[in-house]
Amino acid sequence: MTTLQTERLVLRPLEPADAPAYAQMRFHPDVSRWLPPASDEPVAAAEAAIARFAAGWRERRHAPWGLFRDGRLVGHAGLNYVPEFAETEVLWALHPDAWGQGYATEAARAALDYGFGTLGLDLIFAITLPDNLASQAVMRRLGLGYRRRVDYKGFKDIVWFDIDRDAWRSRSPRA
């Protein structure tokens, strides 16, 4: 499992002890409205997600990280393989207290660098609900382009953005 540090954030794999703080962030009403619903109570769902992320680290060398600012969990971001699409997505979700500070862009940029540079992925996508304009703005800032609409986990007409390795390298001063 890999830990990264950006200018303002520590991106580290979530641990079982992080479950209560992760549940508080992930299931905050302003956050959960954009994400698939949980099938369990929040802490149990957070524990299951953390276990799923740990499996992703073991199997693919990537999964979402917890985002920590000054030692406090402020969100998650990272890479997630989606079997339904046979591709890897970049994702993020932040507690509302952390919105509007550029953390999503900062963390997603680090995830894209890791995915294309370290893992050698060819393409990375991001999806969101059509009315989640804040996430779409992050996608555009990162250089992802709109490609199509998809259905996913009960959500209809999700917007799909993506970027390939060559396009990322041409944009990224670190590539």
Rank of each mutant, 00 (worst) to 15 (best):
G115S: 12
V138H: 05
P42K: 05
L35C: 04
A93R: 04
V74Y: 03
R52A: 07
D70P: 10
A110K: 14
M139P: 01
Y81E: 09
L11M: 07
R69Q: 09
H28G: 11
L112W: 01
P96R: 01
S170Q: 13
A111D: 00
P64M: 13
V138I: 10
Y152S: 15
N80W: 03
N80L: 00
A54D: 15
P42W: 07
D40M: 05
N132L: 03
W57C: 13
R174N: 01
P96M: 05
P96N: 06
R72W: 09
G56C: 08
D97N: 11
V150R: 10
N132Q: 04
P130F: 01
W34P: 00
R148T: 06
P64A: 13
D40P: 01
R72E: 13
I124M: 02
R165V: 00
F116P: 00
A51T: 09
Q5N: 12
P96V: 11
L142A: 04
V82Q: 14
P29G: 12
T88A: 04
R169Q: 04
G154R: 11
G100I: 09
R141S: 11
G145H: 12
D157F: 15
L11D: 01
G145K: 10
R26K: 14
D40C: 04
P64N: 11
L91D: 05
P13L: 08
D131M: 09
W34D: 02
M139Y: 07
T118Y: 02
A44G: 05
S135C: 05
E106M: 15
H76G: 12
A46F: 07
L14Y: 14
R169V: 08
I127T: 07
G154Q: 08
R149V: 10
W92Y: 15
R12Y: 13
A107N: 06
S170C: 13
R165N: 02
I124Y: 00
T118K: 02
L73Y: 13
I124P: 01
E7G: 15
L35H: 03
R169N: 05
T128K: 00
M25F: 14
P29I: 14
F53G: 02
E15N: 15
V90P: 00
A48S: 11
R61T: 10
P64C: 11
S135T: 05
Q5S: 13
T2F: 14
R109N: 01
A44R: 06
E59P: 12
L91I: 10
G120L: 10
V10Y: 08
A77F: 03
L142S: 04
M139C: 12
